[in-house]
Design a protein around this nucleic acid. Structure first.
Lengths: 344, 344
DNA sequence: TACTAAACTGCTAACGATAACATTTACTTA
DNA sequence: TAAGTAAATGTTATCGTTAGCAGTTTAGTA
């Protein structure tokens, strides 16, 4: 059966071409030093036998795998899916392959994966997280291997890890400033789960913008969703409405939550953007198709994946630990969910 | 620097424990045959030195990599992202790793990737496509390597490839029957791009259901979207409306297209579901949050990924080519976009 | 003609792990 | 006590490739 068929190796080629394996190897890796006639003959045999050099053997010899491990929380998620696309593209462009691992949002898996990838002798690891997840203290209990690691989605400069990240504080500020610029003063925030780094950061940006504008923070205007689904946004907005505090605008953590939040507002008889303006976050495909279309903050996610990969590969190639912090800025996509509040 | 640090190998452990490499190997792979005292001592050294056996060396020795290659069209896409999640989970459960490659919807990349993965000596390949893409005739020009391959999203029993797929013909039938059951007779279809296998299949299911119900096909009721984005659905629906044919229901190829299509209908003054009922496809997160919430056909995508992977791994382990066709059924998720048409 | 440099090509060992076989040790049994 | 046996451990060779050096041929030079 086909399963007993052993792949063609360099010796088969050498034998068939009547040369040594070394010559075959040279034809592949350094053809210039081989006599043209020999080179041609060997190349022909290679083509005929469909010989592909084993990167397993090469890796063993060279202790380089040209593979990076990508550890991700859940790559069906919009953020991580796009991050992965950016990473894979950049890796491929630079001659690297990507090995996949999804922790399924269980931070304990992370450590196990790092070990697994180390076993695979990947040249480096890209760690993409979203949660403030410190199952153990990463400072006193460092990751178990000595492989170049670049981390993303978890901006913590105090960690030894090199981080590349999106500036969610600034994203939150951007969204809030946009609402302030439109005359809003009572601005609520519907942010993400408390254990999400990005949720905390965006909240911080919101607070920053308000304090810069000289507006006192009202804790009644802050609400956390318990999850990432539209339903969670729906419930969080219900809670905000029940508090019966006055607000003319909301900054919502994500488009997904915003979709639920809008439904809740509408159910409460509030019109968007006439009664309540909304700025959301992510600019998913459907943000342009809500009613009204969402004004939203867009993150350069693919670019983040590509940049992190580029930095990781440079780390691998040079051996020099890169600058620990690199930050990408978000930008605003204006659509129809924000309306100016007339000065009273 | 850390990059000069060579990973600990089995010989380091052997030396430190005062045994031969073989004993260390046995402690790892077959501890029962090692004397308890020796075993403990070796294990301790392993832990101390943080030794992880090199799977590169193991693979060379055993000619098994326990890695499968996943070739996907674009894994930020809802379908392929979920497929990948299912595949990765199942692979991991069975002790396999997944190597990623995205063709970026360029079918010519596929062949290149197969070669690349063969070079990596992956144990098998999972080929996930969506288009009717025959850059060359796959029958006369088979894939360049002799590795177990299972294909998905491209159900073509006549190919030598083993296919696992979702029954999109039945899905189309299911959607159409649902509308028929609600009394609709003039049912339009807004299907996907003509080069998408699934678009063709769902159209076929639509035709099947109508002909079974004894309804003559009206080509004016069939429209193809040019892409997969909501905008494409918007434009396709505009086209359908411009034709000024009478219809009381539409089966739309995907939720994404449906979102655009609904906007177009609304712009034309048509109410959903009062004037036009809609059945869509995919059940993406936001399908429950459109207005009205979409009745839609759901595909068991993760299950597909998992099943394809299971079949692939069994193929790898046993060497027996699996049955060429395995099919998964869709099911209907009823929400608010379908209304019964009163008998006239 | 003899000698040297240049151009090719080949040999050997090593990367890290382990299967197959070989050896050592401890203990049983006639 | 010698022979035999089972348990524990070691030795050797191998997977496919390539760096480093050695060897061979050819052409060029004195």
């Amino acid at each position: 059966m086909s399963r007993t068929k052993r792949p063609i190796n360099i010796r088969d080629v050498a034998r068939a071409a009547g040369v040594s394996t070394m010559t075959v190897s040279r034809v592949i890796n350094n053809p210039a030093v081989v006599a043209p006639l020999t080179r041609e003959r060997v190349q022909q045999v290679i083509d005929e036998l469909k010989y592909t050099p084993s990167s397993v053997a090469r890796s063993l010899r060279s202790s380089r795998t040209y593979t990076i491990g990508l550890i991700t929380v859940d790559f069906a998620d919009h953020f991580f899916a796009n991050l992965s696309v950016g990473a894979e593209l950049e890796a491929r462009r630079r001659g690297f392959r990507v090995m996949l691992s999804s922790t399924e949002r269980n931070p304990n898996n992370e450590r196990e994966f790092v070990t697994l990838l180390a076993e695979q002798r990947v040249d480096g690891i890209l760690l993409a997280r979203d949660a403030i997840q410190v199952p153990r203290d990463p400072l006193t209990d460092p990751l178990p291997v000595d492989v170049p690691i670049v981390s993303t989605g978890f901006f913590r400069p105090e960690l030894a890890l090199c981080s590349v990240d999106i500036d969610n504080v600034d994203g939150g500020r951007l969204a809030t400033d946009h609402l302030l610029d439109h005359g809003h003063r009572r601005i609520a925030i519907l942010t993400g789960p408390v254990d999400h780094k990005a949720a905390v950061d965006r909240l911080e940006g919101y607070q920053l913008a308000l304090s810069r504008a000289g507006i006192k923070l009202d804790p009644h205007l802050i609400v956390h969703a318990h999850g990432r689904q539209p339903d969670d946004g729906y419930m969080a907005m219900n809670e905000l409405i029940q508090r019966e505090v006055n607000f003319s605008a909301v900054f919502v953590y994500s488009d997904a939550l915003a979709i639920g939040a809008m439904r809740s507002l509408r159910r409460a008889g509030l019109r968007i953007p006439d009664d309540v303006s909304i700025v959301a976050y992510d600019n998913i495909d459907f943000a342009a198709f809500t009613d009204p279309p969402l004004t939203t903050v867009q993150q350069p996610i693919q670019e983040l994946g590509a940049l992190a990969t580029r930095i990781l590969i440079e780390y691998i190639e040079t051996g020099e630990r890169p600058v620990p912090i690199t930050i990408l800025r978000c930008f605003l996509v204006e659509r129809g969910s924000v309306k100016s509040r007339p000065p009273e």
